[in-house]
Structure formats: C-alpha cells, structure tokens
C-alpha cells in the first residue's frame, strides 16, 4: 500500500466560499421581503397572518378538522397521484404505438401528439369539460385528471421512447433469439435498462403535472388553488394566501425531487 497523499491545498477565495453564497441568498430574499412589506405598507395593506392557521386546521372539542388549505392540498396530491399513473400509461402506450410497425398505431399516436402540442392547455380543459365530460358523463375531478394526464403524456411519451431507443438493438436480438416474447423482452430486458435513464426527466414531468394541476380551478375542482381563490373571496387576504399557496406548491415539488433522487440512487446503486 502506498502512502496516502492529501490533495494539494488550494485556498478558497472568500467570494467563492459557501458562506458568501448563503449570505448573498439571505440578502437577496431579505431585500425582496423588505420591498414587499414596504410596498404593502404604502398601499395600506393590512397584513393578517394571524388569521391564517384556521385555514389549515381547527381543533374543535379535541377533534382535528382539516381546513380548506389542507383539503385543497389533498386534492392536489390526489390529482398528482392519479395523474402520474395515467400520464405514464398514456406515455408508454403512445411510445409503443410510435415504435410499432402498425401505421394505424403510428397515426393515432401522431394525431394525439400534434393535437395536444398545438392547442393551449386551458382550451383543452374547456373542451374536456364542456364537450367530452357531458357526453361521457365523467365527474369533474376526473375531467381534470384526464386532461392534465393527456397533456403531460406527450412529454412522457417522448422521454419513454428516447429511453427505450437508447437500449442497443443487440439486446432485442439476443432476447428474441432465446425466445422471449416481445412483452417479456420489454419487461425483463429493455425497461430495466431504460427506466434508470428515464427517471430524472420523468420527475420533471411529475413536477410539471403538480404545477399545471392548478388549472383545474377553471372547472371548479377543489384543489389547492381553487380553495385559495375561495378563501380570498371571503377574506380579501390575497397576499397572505397566495404567498402561502406558492410555498405549499414549492414544498410538494421539493419533496418530490428529493424522493426521486433517493429512488434513482437506489436503482443505480443496485449494481
């Protein structure tokens, strides 16, 4: 064993140090908050943060009752949960159709992608809500989930397709030559190699899905944003509520990013 050598010491310039970064961040947000408070004061805005907690929860007779902000959060999370499942199913189906030999399959996938990509999400929501929902009798919650899933599905399909195509053709051939079916080849050979590559960009899709889900407020699904709008209509606490809601979305997306990094690390770490 050779003697362990330390890397040569390099002094870190004070403007490159972490403490300088942090102090800059604090200064920046400090200034932002000061400006906001100052501006609000000049407008004569009456801050009423003390009224906020009861919109999270109340305890009545020792019983915990969720307030509208928490109810909204649950609905948003529910949209995210069902949404990502449906998004992945749509994305996987579309990707497979596009890679299939069938020209009808290709056409269906291509039409879906073009229509969704070339129309505004807001308009898609109205079309789903006013045209498809009454015909198919879909409840509005599911209208919201489906609409967002179809929207995010276009991104998911590209990611899934790129991931699958990145698996070398020789893998298919080897798998086929030992007699594995197409489905088993996907399941045991292609997806296990492609999924670790897809995970980081798919996290982005999930995060977008949560963010875009705010749009269900236009069809009055009681998600976080809709609840916020309602509270503001009652109380006029628009600053407090919007800041709180933004922070809650931020919280969800940060937690999701962390969860996925852990997952990714575990998938990669297996071999």
């Amino acid at each position: 064993m050779s003697e362990l050598r330390k890397p040569p010491f390099r002094s870190v310039k004070w403007w490159n140090s972490r403490w300088f970064d942090i102090s800059q961040l604090v200064l920046f947000f400090g200034a932002l908050i000061w400006l906001t408070l100052n501006g609000a004061a000049q407008m004569g805005y009456n801050w009423q943060w003390y009224r906020l907690p009861k919109y999270f929860w109340k305890v009545i007779d020792g019983e915990l009752i969720w307030g509208p902000l928490m109810d909204g959060l649950f609905v948003t999370l529910e949209i995210g949960l069902y949404g990502i499942i449906i998004t992945l199913l749509i994305g996987l189906t579309t990707a497979m159709l596009r890679m299939s030999q069938s020209w009808i399959g290709n056409l269906v996938a291509q039409v879906y992608l073009e229509v969704i990509r070339n129309t505004p999400l807001l308009v898609q929501m109205y079309v789903f809500y006013f045209v498809f929902a009454p015909i198919l009798e879909i409840p509005r919650f599911w209208v919201g989930v489906l609409c967002i899933s179809f929207f995010e599905g276009t991104f998911a399909s590209e990611i899934i397709r790129a991931g699958i195509l990145s698996v070398h053709r020789g893998q298919w051939e080897a798998s086929t030559s030992i007699g594995l079916s197409r489905w088993n080849t996907y399941r045991y050979i292609v997806l296990p190699q492609a999924v670790p590559l897809m995970l980081p960009p798919l996290t982005g899709v999930l995060i977008n899905l949560i963010k875009h889900s705010a749009i269900v407020s236009v069809i009055a699904v009681f998600d976080l944003t809709t609840q916020g709008l309602d509270i503001i209509a009652d109380t006029f606490m628009s600053f407090e509520i919007w800041l709180t809601i933004a922070a809650m979305y931020l919280g969800i997306t940060i937690v999701l990013s962390l969860l996925v990094s852990v997952l990714e690390w575990r998938v990669r770490g297996r071999h």
């Binding site: 893998q171 080897a174 030559s177 030992i178 190699q193």
Partner: peptide
Amino acid sequence: RSEVGMVFQQFNLFPH
C-alpha cells in the same frame, strides 16, 4: 426460435 440458438459478434449479454 426455441430450437435455434444464436451467438453474436458483440456477445449481446444483458448487462443488468
């Protein structure tokens, strides 16, 4: 396919 085995130039083993 169940009766015919094949060996490739690039091995094509499953790396995972």
